[in-house]
C-alpha cells in the first residue's frame, strides 16, 4: 500500500488554474522530486498537501486513509485539518523559524503543545517533557547542530536555520516530509550543508517530497522525478528516464535551459 496517493488535484486562484488534474503516488521510504520552472504549480501542490490551500478537486490519501476528498467536504473541519497536517511535515523556503525560541525551543514547541492533550499529561508531565527534549536534542544532533541548540535563530546562519527547520519538521515524526525549495533562499556556499542533511535522511529511508531547482541533487537523491509545467504533470518516472531520456518536448526544453545555465 502506498504511503501517499495524490489523485486529480486541481486548484484555481480566481480565474487562474494553477493545478490541473495532478496526481502521483509515493511508497514508503521513497523520495520524489518535483521539478519545473517557477509558476508551474509545484509550490501550490505542496501547500495543498499540507492543507495550507484547499484543492478545488481531487483526493489525498495517506496509508489508505482518505484525508481529503473534494467531493466530501465533511472532512474539512478545522480539527480534522489539524489532525491531517500531522501526517506531513513541511520545510519552507524561508525557514520560518520562531524567532523568540532557541533552536531547541523551536524543535520542542509543537510536541510540548500536543502533549498537553494527552490524558496522562498531568501525572507523567516530567517524563513526557523529558522525552520530548531528548528527542529534540537527538534530531538536532542528526542535523549537526548539537553545539548550537541554545542559540536563537538570528544567531544562526541561513544554512543552520534551515537545518533547525528540518529538525523541527521531523519532531512530530510525519509520514511524509515535504521540502519547498529548501535551498533557494540560501547563499550558494550554504546549500551544501542543507542538501547533505536531506541526503542523509534519504539514506535512512525517510519518505520525502522535494520541490527543488537543484537538478543534480534531484537526480542523485530521488527515486521518482515529476516534471510539472503550467499546472500539469508533463512527465514522471525514474531520474534516469526523466533526466536521461525525456519523452516530452517541454521536458527537453526545460532541461536544456537548465544545462545551459
Amino acid at each position: 500500500m502506498s504511503v501517499l496517493e495524490v489523485k486529480n488535484i486541481s486548484k484555481s486562484f480566481g480565474e487562474t488554474e494553477v493545478l490541473k488534474d495532478v496526481g502521483f503516488t509515493l511508497e514508503k521510504g521513497e523520495v520524489i522530486a518535483i521539478i519545473g520552472s517557477s509558476g508551474s504549480g509545484k509550490t501550490t501542490l505542496l501547500r495543498c498537501l499540507n492543507f495550507l490551500e484547499t484543492p478545488d478537486g481531487g483526493q489525498i490519501i495517506v496509508n489508505g486513509e482518505t484525508l481529503f476528498d473534494a467531493s466530501n467536504r465533511t472532512l474539512c473541519s478545522e480539527t480534522d485539518i489539524r489532525k491531517n497536517r500531522l501526517h506531513f511535515g513541511l520545510v519552507f523556503q524561508s525557514f520560518n523559524l520562531f524567532p523568540q525560541y532557541t533552536a531547541l525551543g523551536n524543535v520542542k514547541l509543537a510536541g510540548e503543545l500536543l502533549a498537553k492533550q494527552r490524558d496522562d499529561y498531568k501525572e507523567q508531565r516530567r517524563q513526557i517533557l523529558q522525552d520530548i527534549e531528548e528527542k529534540a536534542c537527538e534530531l538536532l544532533r542528526q542535523v549537526g547542530l548539537s553545539d548550537k541548540m541554545h542559540l536563537y535563530p538570528h544567531q544562526l546562519s541561513g544554512g543552520q536555520q534551515q537545518r533547525v527547520a528540518i529538525a523541527r519538521a521531523l519532531a512530530l515524526a510525519p509520514d511524509v516530509l515535504c521540502f519547498d525549495e529548501p535551498t533557494s533562499a540560501l547563499d550558494p556556499e550554504l546549500t551544501g550543508e542543507v542538501l547533505k542533511v536531506i541526503r542523509s535522511l534519504a539514506e535512512k529511508n525517510t519518505t520525502m517530497v522535494i520541490v527543488t531547482h537543484e537538478m543534480q541533487f534531484a537526480r542523485d537523491v530521488a527515486d521518482k522525478v515529476v516534471f510539472m509545467d503550467d499546472g500539469v504533470v508533463v512527465e514522471a518516472g525514474t531520474p534516469e528516464q526523466v533526466f536521461g531520456n525525456p519523452q516530452q518536448e517541454r521536458t527537453i526544453r526545460f532541461l536544456e535551459r537548465y544545462s545551459e545555465q
Binding site: 492543507f51 495550507l52 489532525k83 497536517r85 511535515g89 524561508s94 520560518n96 523559524l97 520562531f98 509543537a110
Partner: peptide, 23 residues
C-alpha cells in the same frame, strides 16, 4: 508578522489560539 510564522505553526498542527499566544 510574516504570514510564514502562522503557516509554520499551522503545519505543526497548532491551534489558532496556540499560534497567536505561543508564536
Amino acid at each position: 508578522v510574516p504570514k510564514g510564522q502562522y503557516e509554520a505553526g499551522q503545519v505543526l498542527g497548532m491551534t489558532k489560539s496556540q499560534i497567536f499566544f505561543k508564536v
